[in-house]
Structure formats: structure tokens, C-alpha cells
């Protein structure tokens, strides 16, 4: 029982990160119908941005202020990178074959991974300690720490903010319009390019938040950290129904829990294959994901 609870808690925090990253994949897919392979590298860059900001300003003592500065620098850095990648790598290809964009995305992803290894070094770096990780309470000898609380709390807050943004603001309405009918949206006076840009920025910011939380809990970061989580997060998005925001969150948590039970009960070497196994299973049984809608081509 205690063991199960432990795995569940681990699963929930892993799931939170998957959910945050999966949202970025699903939003971009919803609006451009492309897999943004570089998304996981934006996530990785978020963690490194915090690392360098902290080093530059000499932030190495745990405090609430430092935590917030860290979080904000991840958000700003990822937003900027997301904007730049869309503007310089994808936008020039908007009118060409979708395959070209996908190939470009793979190129950007690999470039960031290996460019990161040259610039940051391939060895893991210690992430600065920005918050005191004290134990809040203890249940069945399972400690519940500040960092755990922050992961759940920040994720929850981000999801609320995103829901508000998408459903109750002018921009959110425009985002939904562009993703359902881009041509009609353009005719209604929406600037599609700016909405696409904005979507990339929002998705990237969520990835940045995820990266910051992960690095706070497991304070070792390296240029391949994005590659390790990226595919899982993408599968989570497909699992929930690509293009569907609640679906991405649901998929993220289910995958997180699944992986942690798998690792917990002694099949850790198969962890990497689990997400793909789930993926193939979903596509066989329910190709549009758990919450996805079916779309039929008009004949």
C-alpha cells in the first residue's frame, strides 16, 4: 500500500510535467497540424536559461524571490526561443509541403541537442537550489515536500490560466478560430500569423514552466533532457486526442502514472518503449485519442 502510494505520487508529479509539455505539442498541432519536434529542446533550453541567469546574478540561496526569478527567467527564455523558432524556421515554410516543415522541425531539434552539447557541455550540470525543500508532512512514511507541493500547485495554476486564456479572452477565441478554420478566421479579420506566433509562445512558456519544475525536483540538467521527455509528452498528447487541451493533460497524467508503476514494479528498462507501445495501441483501438473528435474527409 505504502509502495503503491509512493508510485502514485511519483506518477502524478511526472504526469504534471508531461501534461505541461504535452499542451505545447497539442496547441501547435491544433493550429498548424505539425509535430513541433523542437518543442522538447525549447523545454531543455528553459532549464539552461535558469541555470545561466542564476549563475550570472549569483543566485544560489534558496528563497521565494529567487524561486520566482528562476520561474520567470524560464518563462521569458522559452517564450523568446519559441517565438524565434517559429519565426525563422517554420514561418518561411508555411506555404510548402507539410513534410518539409516536419523535416525542418527534426533538424532544429537535433541542432539544439548537439549545439547544446557544444555550448553547454555534454555533462550534466547542477541546477541551483532556489527553494528550500523542507518536508511539509509525512503520510505512511512517505514525505511530502515543498517541491512536490510546488509542482502540483504551479501546474494547477498554469492550467487554470491557460483555460481562462483560451476560453474567456479575445485572443483565446482567435486561437480557437484559427485552429478550426484558418481561412475563415483570416476573412473575419484575424491576423493568423500573429495568432500562430502567440500559440507557439504560450506552448513554449508552458514547457519552460515544466522544465523549471523538473530541474527543481531533480537538479541535474543536460542538453539531452528534452529528448528524454519529448516523445513521451507527444504520445501523451496523442493519447488524449491531439489538438485537444484537456486531452493532453489527461494523457500526460495517465502516461506519468503508467511509467511510474512500470518502473516501481521492476520493469524500468522497458520504460522508454512504454509510451510507444501505448501509442500504437491507441492508434489501433481509438485513433483519435481519448477525447479527440473524429473527422471524416468529405467525398
Amino acid at each position: 500500500m505504502q509502495e503503491f502510494l509512493q508510485h502514485t505520487l511519483n506518477g502524478l508529479s511526472t504526469g504534471s510535467i508531461y501534461a505541461l509539455v504535452a499542451l505545447g505539442y497539442t496547441m501547435v498541432y491544433g493550429i498548424l497540424q505539425m509535430i513541433n519536434f523542437a518543442h522538447s529542446e525549447i523545454y531543455m533550453l528553459g532549464a539552461f536559461a535558469v541555470y545561466y541567469v542564476a549563475r550570472f546574478f549569483g543566485l544560489n540561496t534558496p528563497s521565494t524571490l529567487n524561486f520566482i526569478i528562476g520561474l520567470l527567467s524560464a518563462i521569458v527564455a522559452c517564450g523568446l526561443v519559441g517565438f524565434a523558432v517559429e519565426r525563422f524556421a517554420y514561418k518561411p515554410l508555411r506555404k510548402t509541403d507539410k513534410l518539409n516543415v516536419l523535416i525542418t522541425a527534426i533538424g532544429v531539434s537535433i541542432l539544439f541537442q548537439f549545439g547544446g552539447q557544444i555550448i553547454f557541455g555534454a555533462d550534466p550540470k547542477s541546477f541551483p537550489d532556489l527553494i528550500e525543500n523542507t518536508e511539509l508532512f509525512n503520510f505512511l512514511e512517505i514525505p511530502f515536500n515543498v517541491v512536490d507541493l510546488l509542482i502540483y500547485g504551479v501546474t494547477f495554476a498554469s492550467l487554470i490560466a491557460l483555460t481562462y486564456l483560451v476560453n474567456y479572452t479575445q485572443r483565446g477565441r482567435a486561437m480557437r478560430a484559427v485552429s478550426t478554420k484558418p481561412d475563415a478566421a483570416k476573412l473575419m479579420g484575424i491576423n493568423n500569423d500573429s495568432i500562430i506566433s502567440f500559440t507557439f509562445v504560450v506552448g513554449s512558456v508552458l514547457a519552460g514552466i515544466g522544465a523549471f519544475l523538473v530541474a527543481t525536483k531533480y537538479p541535474k540538467i543536460d542538453p539531452m533532457m528534452g529528448a528524454r521527455i519529448g516523445m513521451g509528452a507527444f504520445v501523451a498528447a496523442v493519447f488524449g486526442g491531439i489538438g485537444n487541451l484537456p486531452g493532453a493533460v489527461l494523457g500526460g497524467y495517465l502516461l506519468g502514472l503508467g511509467e511510474c508503476y512500470l518502473i516501481g514494479y521492476g520493469a524500468s528498462t522497458f520504460r522508454e518503449a512504454l509510451s510507444f507501445f501505448i501509442l500504437i495501441l491507441i492508434l489501433l483501438v481509438k485513433p483519435n485519442g481519448l477525447l479527440g473528435k473524429t473527422a471524416k474527409e468529405k467525398i
Binding site: Y29, M34, I35, M231, V235, V238, A273, I280, L283
Partner: peptide, 19 residues
């Protein structure tokens, strides 16, 4: 499956083989 989905499934197949 088309395009992206197929890409991911084939990628997944290769990963499963490797594992």
C-alpha cells in the same frame, strides 16, 4: 495513418526494437 502520425509510429517501432 498519414504524415506525422505514421512518422511517430515508425519512430516508435524503431524504439521498441531497440529496447
Amino acid at each position: 495513418l498519414k504524415g506525422d502520425y505514421l512518422a511517430i509510429v515508425t519512430l516508435g517501432f524503431a524504439e521498441i526494437v531497440r529496447v
